[in-house]
C-alpha cells in the first residue's frame, strides 16, 4: 500500500519540503518509523467514504468578521526585540536570491 512507498528518497524529499535537516541516521530511522505508523494508519483508506463529507471545522460557525478598525501596533523595538538578527529597522535574513 501507500506506506510501502516510504523510502529514503521520499523521506529526503519530504524533509526538504518541511525545511528539516535530518542526519543520515535520523533519515533512516524516519523511513522505518513512518512506514510502521502509516501501515497502522492506512486501515482507514479501506473504508467506503464516497458519500461522506469531510469535516474541517467542528464548530458550527460562519462569518466571524472583525470591523475594519485600527488597533495599536507594536513599537518597532518590541517587534524586533526577539529577532536573532535585526538591524535598527528590520529583520535581517540571508538574501533569498543569493
Amino acid at each position: 500500500m501507500l506506506a510501502l512507498m516510504i523510502d529514503r528518497a521520499r523521506v529526503d524529499h519530504v524533509a526538504r519540503l518541511a525545511r528539516l535537516e535530518l542526519t543520515d541516521e535520523e533519515s533512516e530511522r524516519m523511513v522505518r518509523e513512518l512506514s510502521s505508523i502509516l501501515e497502522h494508519i492506512e486501515r482507514i483508506t479501506n473504508l467506503d467514504l464516497a458519500d461522506v463529507p469531510p469535516t474541517s471545522h467542528v464548530v458550527d460557525l460562519t462569518n466571524v468578521l472583525r470591523p475594519d478598525e485600527p488597533r495599536p501596533c507594536l513599537p518597532r523595538e518590541a517587534a524586533l526585540a526577539q529577532a536573532p538578527d535585526a538591524t535598527e529597522d528590520g529583520f535581517r535574513v540571508p538574501s533569498p536570491s543569493a
Binding site: 517587534a79 535574513v93 533569498p96
Partner: peptide, 9 residues
C-alpha cells in the same frame, strides 16, 4: 561573503 536582506512587515 553572503548578501543579506531586511524584512519589512
Amino acid at each position: 561573503g553572503s548578501a543579506h536582506s531586511i524584512v519589512d512587515f
